[in-house]
Write a protein that binds this DNA or RNA. Structure first.
Lengths: 217, 217
DNA sequence: CGACTCAGAATGAACACTCATTCATCGAAG
DNA sequence: CTTCGATGAATGAGTGTTCATTCTGAGTCG
């Protein structure tokens, strides 16, 4: 991995954004299946239905594909989350929506979620440079909702909002990982239902702890 | 990555277990620094102070090094955790100890923790085969403590003990990851102190939620 | 409308490089 | 001296990237 810019490369207007998008989506799929390092550029090309060399008309190199996933996709997540965080709703309702949003990502875009969480852990400086600030922004939005709840007295103040946000995200991510690792004799639908149920339980445990805590009958 | 056994290869008694151990420890360090894929066998050899070919006297191949880390080291963690889980102590005290144990792993052996958590996410079938059952056993021990608390009425029963265990682990892991990603202008000692404080806050939030929940003054 | 031209997109085999692994040779220990 | 461990350059496989060539689509002209 070498230092490079993730500036979009292809400037033509002829269906080019569609092809770039197609390559990105293909990359998400194959990265999620086998990981970044086990994925060849030719795998991405095949999945996208283009020639190997075509990748280089749109991206500088293989790293640039991954970096572009981070920039494009986390950027969009941040927009969605910003809308949810800014709603005029009770804070615990907003936390529940954030959990649903995260769960939706884990469910419907598990490939993207996996690409993000796996590659955030890679110690490459390049990824740190491009992935971490965006992801930190994502977490700060969650923390801002919790902080608002603290100011209004709904949530406890002895736990920092940043700690709570990170633990919330980590808890959900941990559930997704260990569900993926678990005994897989169930079909996808019942696994998703189980994950949804687990996320709901986790959400209520988390909110009770965050209230510090309402007695649960 | 191909199918292979992780059976120890070197049978001589002349300092060989020391060298094998030295290679494993070196591998943990360099894997944690740059990731498995960005680490060359020659990097491990250099870190261990042996020649490249020597690695193959002790391990089948590069994958085998990683698999051996999983088998040796998670095995030991499970022993320690089993002791903690089996103590005659209040269950919430035991959960606190588990958090400390996890935190100790995150602090003192952050390299090992990173190797484990990063590589558990790689979708390689080989790693799933060797890593996931051990790790699942680790999580089940945590869940057994929580289940005991549920049976005795200390902890709520509407949250499955497995969900709680996984979320606990995920929460801590998420804190460690995001602390590592965070603004790094502090020295290691104050970062560790911050992580310790965060883990403590997280532990109390988690326990309150698990009790479902004791009112926090 | 069809033929032609031109510019830019797409192709995929060749190329250059990397690195896991091997093995002939040397060194060390008993 | 013999046996076994250690060495590290050579080997071969794999893959990211390049670039000469072909293809495609839009515009122009008769």
């Amino acid at each position: 991995m070498n230092t490079h810019s993730s500036k979009p490369k292809h400037k033509s207007g002829r269906g080019s954004s569609d092809k770039r998008e197609r390559i990105l989506e293909a990359a998400i799929r194959v990265f999620a299946q086998g990981g970044f390092y086990a994925t060849r550029v030719s795998d991405i090309a095949k999945e996208a239905g283009v020639a190997d060399g075509t990748i280089y008309l749109y991206f500088e190199n293989k790293d640039d594909v991954l970096i572009s996933i981070f920039q494009d996709r986390i950027g969009k997540l941040i927009e969605v989350l910003r809308e949810v965080a800014g709603r005029d709703e009770p804070v615990d309702e907003r936390v529940r929506r954030i959990i649903e949003l995260q769960l939706g990502l884990l469910e419907g875009r598990r490939d993207l979620a996996e690409v993000i969480t796996v590659n955030l852990r890679q110690s490459s400086k390049l990824l740190k440079q491009y992935g971490a600030p965006l992801f930190t922004e994502y977490l700060e939005l969650i923390a801002s909702v919790i902080a608002e709840g603290q100011r209004s007295g709904v949530f406890r103040e002895d736990v920092s909002s940043r700690v709570a946000a990170r633990a919330l995200w980590g808890g959900l991510d941990g559930l997704a990982l260990t569900w993926a690792l678990g005994g897989g004799d169930k079909d996808d639908a019942s696994r998703d239902a189980a994950l949804k149920k687990a996320a709901h339980q986790w959400g209520e445990l988390f909110l009770d702890g965050l209230r510090g805590g309402t007695h649960h009958a």
